[in-house]
Design a protein around this nucleic acid. Structure first.
Length: 128
RNA sequence: GGAGCAGGCCACCUUAUCGCCUUGGAGACAAUGUUUGCAAGGAGGAAAGUCCGGACACCAUAGUGCGGCAUAGCGGGUAACGCCCGUCCACCGAAAGGUGAGGACAAGUGCAACAGAAAGGAUGUACAGUACGGCUGUAGUGAAAUCAGGUAAACUCUAUGUGGUGAAACGCCAUGUAAACCGGUAUUUAAGGGUGGCACGCCCGUGCUGGAGGGUAGGCGGAUAGAGGUUUUGGGCAACCAAAAUCCUAGAUAAAUGAUAGGGCUCGACAGAAUCCGGCUUACGGCCUGUUUUAUAA
């Protein structure tokens, strides 16, 4: 299984970010929230993703870094779950809504739940 | 040992697995990019606050004068400083030691509780002296009573310094339509306008000519080898300076340096580079050295 997380799979365009928050749909598995939006691009990978820890809740840069690392790590371990079961390309943002520092275990469990929801919603949206 | 004072050092370690960023050289695709595996490197003492000082870049809204602002014993260090070192003085402390808006009241203006006749255009009372002039001395209140009085973290004056903006600066490339955009040159300074608080000045015009511009948060440069670190020698009380040898030590851009599992110990605080340096300030765990004082209680 591919556990890598190269730069190409990251969401880096500011334009995309704006678009995602304005037009994207959201799913929540507290304390995680996902924004997603289908995209069309030939030379880009299946998913482009970014993680966010708001400054509002965590003033310390060290804590924000820690949360983002946990989220990235969790995504990296679990991305095969959505890679292998979807068609089309998506841009994703995963937001941490909580106000307390999470443990890795909690983030893992919530990430599973979030992906499950995501897969279900995607297949419902796609009448074949 | 207790209570202080000064200075220095460290910033959990380690193994495995899975990952991230940069650089180097190798292979493949193929044209300077993608990809595969390899090697090396990968946050701080404060990276923080953005409070001072510079480097660098751009802008006549950049110049000149006034104003404003900053600094303030004396001497030295430095690229520079409001920083650092030495030293005098004042204050705090039993001491080690610490603190410091420490220039000028002999330019002008203002202010001064209580006490006191009177507090800044002085001169009342008593006594004594007398050149008989509120002229001299003493007493009395007060921190201070005519003395070149005190006070400038009072206005003020003196000396020195000071343009503004800030890497989202700035330069280049790509995409792409016309005038507006920029440079050169000729000519005119009339009205009006712009301009960091004011004045002067400066800029804005038109013709010709050459180049290509606006908008875009695409890419590259700026951008990491530097007022650099370490050691030795020499100079200096010191801050620091000079010479030689040696080392290369993050460079991201929605932003890398991590996650999990095991082991160990003294059980890990504050905290994450963003153009780069020198300081200051604030947050904070631990260890060591020197030194002052106290005590013989365990």
């Amino acid at each position: 299984m591919d556990f890598s997380f190269p730069k190409k799979e990251r969401l880096t365009s500011k334009k995309r970010f704006q678009q995602l928050f304005e037009e994207g749909k959201q799913l929540t598995a507290f304390p995680l929230r996902m924004y997603y939006l289908p995209i069309q691009s030939n030379d880009e990978p299946k998913f482009k993703i970014a993680v966010v820890a708001p400054k509002r809740h965590f003033k310390s840069a060290v804590k924000r870094n820690r949360i983002k690392r946990l989220l990235r790590e969790s995504y990296r371990h679990n991305k095969h779950r959505i890679f292998n079961n979807t068609k089309g390309q998506y841009a994703l943002v995963i937001l941490y809504l909580g106000k307390e520092m999470p443990t890795f275990d909690l983030v893992e469990r919530k990430m599973h739940a979030l992906f499950k929801k995501f897969l279900k919603t995607i297949s419902d949206e796609r009448p074949i």
